[in-house]
Write a protein that binds this DNA or RNA. Structure first.
Lengths: 222, 222, 222, 222
DNA sequence: TATGAATGAGAATTCATTCAT
DNA sequence: CATGAATGAATTCTCATTCAT
């Protein structure tokens, strides 16, 4: 009720969400029992239900929090940037940066999209659609600007998402290139591929990355 | 007698696998109960266990059958083709063609990769690794041949898999471009992207596709 | 129908009973499935049902065969022997000899006495009662003849059965004394104990054992 | 709060164990379903699992509790008694007294010894071995002291256990002699038998029994 | 005689969730 | 805020048995 209480509650909620996301990511949502979460959080079974109403809501909270952040960060980052190619580049960077820094949550977001039903599903999905639309419009704009023909817009859009979202299946921060490299590689493959080899001014692809990355670091990072 | 009997058993097994794959694809492996499968196949709960030893083995049979076919078809298709770019193109075509024609099985393959444990997992995984290696070596070859620099091999490989495997999340055969178009789009985006816009002789990309596609139609198609 | 057929049938039945007894002895009746027996006998599940009508009947056949033999052998052996002490001695010898040579069946007889229900149970039990009565009368006779007081007849009877039947829990033919020794030890402990140290003419205890043992070798031995 | 709560849990656990033991004794472990126990305890199926982790652990808890008590009582009773014959006598008394007063548990202990597997089996078995060793050493001591020859130690030991443990097959507290009589009979038969009629001072066999019996009444008795 | 295929009944166990305290 | 105790519903799987062939 007081600020202190609310803050303690939030802290613990975030702790529960983080921990749950880690377990969901490892074992999958359906194979994780509330008992597993109780064990991992050192809380009692029933104690957990103070923080969420059902297992499904727990999943929702994770996904919603996650999506809101990615989408919010993305919008903030793109605000004021006009050039569509640059906007796309920033979007990819933001997405991958958040993904790599919140691997568990993003895996849960990508992999457990259909583990949620009903209204909660709709809520998450509406955010997802906004995000997809954002990307699709961006790609459309780029395609028009560069006279790209013969590339289907939906194929392009979801190819990009495929490249980005698939990383939970293989990316290992300790063995693989860092986020910057990952971003650069994926941007290069996708953008050059989309534009069919038509030149893109290098500066559009290279400038200012680091400064933006800093702003994209998500709330949940310690 | 023997041929007929064996064939009846096999027919029914295939029917069980197909049906199960459809339900797994729709509801997810863990959310599907053997009851669901019994209902869909019009068999008794226990009757199903005549065809597989456990739910997990059922998943394995689907994945194994699926992987074996993709990998087998792929090898057969690539045999005798020397040019790596063309080989890659055929591989992508084969993958997408099989995927689109066996959407359920391929979704189960992609999405339920970790729903399987222990030895059965290892078996499936060893086939997966062969396939990944095949792709990676191909890309390596292409990259060397075209002096591609600054693209990480692992990023390239899994970007391609990401593009291809993600389609179970969005591709709708009735609304979207057909397999040929899908193939062409993805090949173009990825290959041009990989090569950084360096020219690829158009004939390498365009010739002879249809005839091959016919040969890649998988065993399970009616 | 012909002698040949009947004989083949009997041979196979005995084989099934022997094999089943071995598995029952090892895993217990309830933990043994008909499938286990089918596997061990190299027969089909349904093929077994030609030889018995139900799992319970299978148990019955083993127990009945076993009891009939012990009881029959015993009566034949005791026929013509008048001295009760000698009769008892022969009875113990016969029991232990049969037990040690048919460990599996006897374990099933001792341990699974209550795994059988209804009429089949009654049938086995009636034979058991005859056997118990035989022993009890023998002990009564001995007790009277030797003025044994202060030993309860039922306690004596079942102490003897306890000593003899418990051996399936510990006796190891390869490590322990042989049947003759086992017989001698148990007879000595029980008989001396019963008679309270009153002298028994040694010849009653020692003579003629071997010749009788030969006759007690049961039908099932190869 | 703590004492009360702990006690409530323990009380209920003991109630569950007692009830289960009764059903196991009557129908056998394998033929008893958790449903049977739920019915008899007036608890829900799943509610039972709050008190034990598996049916097998339930069996273990019964056997372990039982063995611990017998062994513990036995050691306490024998402490300070030097004469081996007297020690044996007390041991037999303790065993039979506990057995008769906890017929269900002891039947489960005797009859379901092999219904338990793996580590739980090992745990119970290690206690069993301690108990057997105790008896065997005692008998060895007695045999040496009285120059007993020609009795195999293992035969003697397990004959005694056979006499004592078999009682679950026949002893009826309402029809048969009481525990004191049972003890006396079995001690007399076994001990006289073992010593081959050699005199044992009567006072060693007769004194002080009742007072000890009182002390051996087990925890579970109401 | 023998068996492949099938099944109904029931087994143990798990799980999300609740509620009195 | 927190939890110990409890439960209904569902899950996977096993088993004895059958029956057409």
């Amino acid at each position: 009720m007081t600020v202190e209480t609310a803050s303690k509650y939030d802290q613990k909620l975030v702790y529960v969400l983080k921990t749950s996301a880690a377990i969901f990511a490892e074992k999958g949502y359906h194979s994780t029992s509330i008992r597993d979460i109780a064990r991992a959080t050192n809380m009692s079974l029933s104690g957990l239900y103070y923080y969420f109403g059902s297992k499904e809501e727990l999943l929702f909270l994770i996904q919603d929090y996650c999506f809101s952040t990615v989408l919010g960060d993305c919008r903030r980052l793109l605000a004021g940037v006009d050039d569509p190619v640059r906007r796309l580049k920033l979007l990819i960077e933001n997405h991958l940066n958040y993904f790599v820094n919140n691997m568990n949550e993003m895996k849960v977001l990508s992999h457990e999209a259909n583990s949620i039903k009903g209204d909660l599903f709709k809520k998450v999905n509406s955010k997802k659609r906004q995000y997809v639309d954002l990307v699709m419009e961006l790609l459309d704009e780029i395609a028009r600007a560069h006279n790209v023909e013969s590339i289907d817009l939906r194929v392009a859009t979801f190819s990009l998402f495929g490249m980005m979202n698939w990383i939970y299946n293989w990316y290992n921060p300790r063995k693989d290139v860092d986020v910057a490299g990952l971003s650069q590689n994926i941007t290069r493959i996708f953008l050059t591929g989309l534009l069919g080899g038509k030149a893109v001014k290098p500066d559009k692809l290279e400038t200012g990355r680091e400064s933006h990355l800093d702003r994209t670091v998500s709330v949940w990072q310690q």
